[in-house]
Every structure is written in structure tokens, then in C-alpha cells.
Design a protein around this nucleic acid. Sequence first.
DNA 1: AGGTTGACCTGGACGC
DNA 2: TGCGTCCAGGTCAACC
Length: 271
Amino acid sequence: MPELPEVETVANGVDARVRGQRIERVTLGSKPEPLKSPAHVIEETLTGARITRVHRVGKTVVIDVQRRDGAAAQATVHLGMTGRLLVSQAEVPMPPHTHAVLHLHDGREVRFVDPRRFGRVGVVESSEQYAGPGKEPTTIAPEEFAKLFRGRKTPIKSALLNQSLLHGVGNIYADESLFRAGIRPKRHAGRLTRAELHKLHGALQTVLQHAIELGGSSVSDYVDADGVRGFFQLEHRVYSRTGQPCRECGEPIQRIVIGGRSTHFCKKCQK
DNA sequence: AGGTTGACCTGGACGC
DNA sequence: TGCGTCCAGGTCAACC
């Protein structure tokens, strides 16, 4: 489900609700558990810890905590395709596919719900901050952005999705930024001109910023920590618009598959 | 090493 | 109504 803007919306929503709360207890359910760290390590790291901040790194929600002994640690929650992080009163019935629950001091619960089980929960025990696999797309400078793609033979669409280059860009925002930059998704990343890379850098940052402001894209069931849907899907120019007229030129939007991912573009507006 | 493909899961939409 | 098929916002491991 969630790409950078959706994860950022979720993280900000959870932060506003639970910052400062103490975690009384951790419940991990339903085997096999979608865990990145062993269950006992997650429980030992988080039980009794205070939440100091919730934020986003790439597509991962990071929960900073201070443990009882004062040491810093972090919980990492990757939402996969269908993961949700909900803050609920304990009385609210537990949704199906709830895999992890942080029981807070004030009686509320942070619940990780994920039907498809592609998400993962882990912890970073040391004080070293989780940095994510790649560069941050919202702040990367144009020259550094361009350098990422130098010499790469893979389609630019695939390169944008490669989390070890840029982290946080997923299928929607890759297609949307390529449309706005006027670049065909099949173009080899290493063959783009300086001008094209510059335009793509700008388009990507503009699209991500705009999507964050609108609370992300709600396709099917994505909702934020309050159960509120985002609105960026109304701004989609190509994603999931196969056969519909291009909003710029009227040409029907094409759907092809690149690297196993469905890809949408306008063959007249993108060269 | 870089690049590509299929596997991992559940559920919703659609066609017959 | 029900069954089968296809599709889905993401990674990974395994291959070339």
C-alpha cells in the first residue's frame, strides 16, 4: 500500500497521538509473526520504554523510544502493501490480522494490522539511528540525484523503485513523477540527459510534497492513523488511469509491465 | 555487481 | 450465489 507520502502521514498522525506515552506491554500475535527481530528482543526493548518521537525513514515508520535505563532504541514498522498502524482505545474490537500491539500507559493501544503479511516489525537496540537503505528523495540535491542513475542500464522506472538508491518512492509516485517530467518509463536510467534528470528531480519532489500535503493517496483501503483517507488520488495523472484520456492531451493512458510492476504513461506527453 | 524474475500472502473486483 | 481468474501501494532470494 503505502509509499513515502502515506507513510509520512501515518507516522505524523501516530506521533501526534502517542508521543510521550510509556509502553506498558507488547503483544505479538498470530504465528508466523511478521517480525524482523526475534519476538523476545522486541518485547525486551520496548516494554517499559517511553515514546519520544514517531517519524518516517524511507517507507518505514520509526518509533524512537527511551528505555527505562535511559538508553535510546527504535522500533521499525514497515507497512508492506496492506499494513496499517492504528491508535485505538483498548475497548475497540481487535481487527482481524492484528500482528502486534503496543499497550500504552493511558489505556490506548498502537495496533499493527496487515492482512497480506508483507509488513515487518523490528527494533534497533543500539543508539544508532535507523537510516534506511538509500537516499532521502524529498531532500536530495539535484546533482546527487543525477549521480544515482549514472551508468545504469535498467529502465528509469525500475531505478526509481530501487530502495537502495532512493528510498520511499513506490509505484504510484514513480509513474506520476515520470509523467510530470515527460519521460517514458522504459528509458534507460543511464541514458537520460542532464536536463531530463533535473526535470525528474523537480517533478518527484513536487509530487511527493503535494501528496504529503493532501494526506497521501487512498487507493482501495489506505487510511491514516485516524482512519481518514488521503486525497492525492484525485491528482493522479496516469496511475490506475489505463485507457482514460490523458489530462494534458487526451491520448488514452497506456499500461505496460516493467520489472513485474504495472506502469502507466502517456505516449504523447512522455518521450 | 547489476539486472530480472518469481515467491511471498490475502482479499476485492470482475466475468461467466 | 458461486467459482475461477486477475490484480494490488513492496520486498527478497535466487538466478543470469
